[in-house]
Structure formats: C-alpha cells, structure tokens
Computed example of a mutant assay.
Amino acid sequence: MACAALRAALRARGIAGLIASTPTRQKEEFHMTIAFIGLGAMGHNMAANLLRSGQPVHVWNRNPAPVQALAEKGAKPAASAAECGIADIVFTMLADDKATREVMIDGGVLDAMAPGSIHVNMATVSVAFAREMAALHQQKGIGYVAAPVLGRVDVAEAGKLNILAGGSDELIARVQPLFDLIGQKTWRFGNEPEQANAIKLACNLMLACAIEATGEGTALARAHGIPAESFIDLITNTLFAGSPVYKGYGGMIAQQRYSPPGFKLTLGQKDVRLAVEAGQGTNLPLAFGDALQGLFKEAVDHGDVDLDLAALGKNAARRGGLD
C-alpha cells in the first residue's frame, strides 16, 4: 500500500489522533506520538518506561503477549508494524539486521513514516547495515538515530540503561527527553549513526573477552581444587574490584547459573561476529574476536544456544572435563 493511502487508512481508524497537521515536525514541539516495535525482554521494559512520557505509545511485536501486557498499562496496540509508522518517533529494538530489515522495510514501516519523523534504532546491528539504513532514511526525509544500549534486563526495567547515540545533534536533542525515561545517561558518539553501532560492538567484544577470561580463570582455579566462589571473591575484591562485569558474570559462572538468559549466548556470538566484520571493514584484525568466534561455535555445538552469555564459563570448564 502506498504511504499516503496507508496513512489515510490509519487516520480513518482513529490511530493517528495526535499526528501533526503538516508532515514536518517542529523542533520545539513535544506533543508527539511514540511507537515501539520489538517487545522482547529489553524492549518491553523500555516501552513501559516510555509510557511515563504522558504521550500516546503505540506498540507492536510478533508475539502478541507483550503487546497485551503493555496495553494493560496504557499502551495502544497496533495491528501491524506498519501502523506504528504513523507515529512521530518510532523506536525499534529487534534482534539483528535481518529482523530490522523485515520489519522496517519489508513490513512497510518506513513507507508509512512521514518526512520529518524519526526512527530510533536501539538494536545492536552491523556497521554496514547502519550505514545502509541511514542512507535510506535520508532519501525518504526521515530522521535516523542509532541508539544501542548497555545494560541487562533488570537495568532496562529500572530505566537506568546507558544509551550510545549516533546521529545529528538536532535529532538527538528531539528524542533526548525520551532517552531520559529509559536511560541514566546518553553517550554521544559521532554524527553518523554507524559510529554508535561500532562503539556498541566494541563494548560487546570486550564483554565477551572478559567473560571468557573469567571462565578460563575460574576453570584453572577449580582444576587445582579451589572453589569457584573463592576465586571470584578474590578477583572482584582485588584485580577487578568495582567491575559489574566480573562481579555479575563471575557470580553466574561460580554458581553455574546460566538460565534464564538475560543476554543470550547466541546474541553475544552475533555481536562478536559483527565486531570482527567491522574491523575487517577498516583493515583492522581482531585477534581476540577471531578466537572468540571459535569458542562460541564450540559452545553452540554443545547445545548452549538457549543459555546466558555467562555460559562461556561453562564451555571453558567443559574443555577441562570439570562439568
């Protein structure tokens, strides 16, 4: 369906009540509609916090259960992803490049968005895809901001995520009041959206390295008769005191607590692969990234696909016959 026809149909259904009378939004205007697409564990909590804005929040998800849960809190369910395209600001939190393409492009969301509206992509996607999306949005006169986040599900629920934002200052200023509802700080990384995605991939590469190192160190201690809890207590109070990564993931490894996943191992695998690809795009070899790809494959081959990223520690122990 053509963009104009789709928007007219949505107005007829009463969904676009607060859309501006002209397609171009005014910078100072904050009476705007919001949409959130992708209501997984992270997205559900982020969308719930956006309800505190007092503005209409339209929500859509492939699995309708999270939509209903948010509707009970005041969100407005959309019958399709494309219906969310009539909002002034569309947030997406989808699994990867493929899911984002299927929803935003193939699903008609971009076609339904008006010039002057903004798409905020909070997913961890590849640098190449971020560059492609930025160009496509520019062609359509739609603002595009990359805003991947740091933080697990409990942090998202508390509205304390760290937001890594890439895009023009003007666009980010327009969405900053909404960022303030879902995050404790917005970190600016360049005027090109892809720069924020590069930073997120760099962060997740280091995260995976830290977890693998913790897993291998713990396995070495256990192999010599030292309880895992004692080793983790040592490193989190000495070498890595104050680090939430070593304390949080180290505790999970010590307790062999890998489920339910807060950050699935397969998502970490995807992020490390994208980090290696981002390095290749600038002729930068990533030796740890290459090694981690093999370790992730090993964990997946052993059936750890539904476990938390902390299961890298399980895989390290398994290599030594400790599990």
Score class of each variant (00 low, 15 high):
residue 53 S to C: 02
residue 6 L to T: 13
residue 48 A to W: 08
residue 78 A to W: 03
residue 21 S to A: 10
residue 40 G to M: 09
residue 36 F to C: 05
residue 73 K to T: 07
residue 23 P to I: 10
residue 7 R to T: 07
residue 54 G to D: 05
residue 60 W to V: 11
residue 78 A to I: 01
residue 66 P to R: 04
residue 78 A to H: 06
residue 7 R to S: 02
residue 77 P to I: 07
residue 77 P to F: 05
residue 73 K to N: 03
residue 13 R to C: 00
residue 50 L to S: 04
residue 31 H to R: 15
residue 61 N to D: 03
residue 69 A to M: 05
residue 62 R to C: 03
residue 34 I to A: 05
residue 45 N to V: 00
residue 82 A to L: 07
residue 53 S to W: 06
residue 44 H to A: 09
residue 58 H to R: 14
residue 66 P to Q: 03
residue 78 A to Q: 02
residue 12 A to N: 08
residue 41 A to H: 12
residue 65 A to D: 10
residue 52 R to S: 09
residue 35 A to Y: 14
residue 41 A to S: 15
residue 80 S to C: 01
residue 67 V to C: 08
residue 55 Q to C: 11
residue 34 I to E: 01
residue 44 H to F: 13
residue 44 H to W: 07
residue 86 I to K: 11
residue 24 T to R: 15
residue 66 P to T: 09
residue 66 P to I: 01
residue 9 A to F: 04
residue 64 P to T: 05
residue 65 A to P: 00
residue 37 I to S: 06
residue 40 G to C: 05
residue 84 C to T: 14
residue 12 A to G: 12
residue 31 H to F: 08
residue 82 A to I: 06
residue 36 F to E: 12
residue 28 E to D: 12
residue 5 A to F: 01
residue 77 P to R: 14
residue 10 L to E: 13
residue 34 I to T: 15
residue 33 T to I: 07
residue 18 L to D: 13
residue 33 T to R: 15
residue 29 E to H: 11
residue 44 H to S: 08
residue 81 A to T: 10
residue 57 V to K: 01
residue 17 G to K: 13
residue 57 V to L: 13
residue 19 I to N: 14
residue 33 T to Q: 15
residue 44 H to D: 01
residue 73 K to E: 08
residue 60 W to C: 01
residue 24 T to Q: 14
residue 86 I to R: 15
residue 37 I to W: 03
residue 70 L to M: 07
residue 13 R to M: 01
residue 17 G to M: 04
residue 44 H to L: 09
residue 34 I to H: 11
residue 8 A to E: 13
residue 47 A to C: 06
residue 59 V to C: 03
residue 47 A to G: 10
residue 42 M to G: 10
residue 63 N to M: 00
residue 71 A to N: 05
residue 75 A to M: 06
residue 22 T to K: 14
residue 21 S to I: 00
residue 59 V to Y: 02
residue 56 P to I: 07
residue 16 A to Y: 03
residue 48 A to H: 14
residue 40 G to L: 04
residue 36 F to P: 11
residue 67 V to H: 02
residue 10 L to A: 10
residue 30 F to A: 10
residue 64 P to F: 05
residue 34 I to N: 06
residue 83 E to S: 06
residue 29 E to K: 13
residue 30 F to Y: 12
residue 73 K to H: 09
residue 30 F to S: 12
residue 6 L to V: 02
residue 48 A to V: 08
residue 74 G to F: 07
residue 86 I to Y: 12
residue 53 S to K: 02
residue 36 F to L: 09
residue 7 R to E: 02
residue 29 E to C: 08
residue 78 A to Y: 04
residue 28 E to K: 11
residue 44 H to Q: 12
residue 49 N to D: 05
residue 36 F to Q: 02
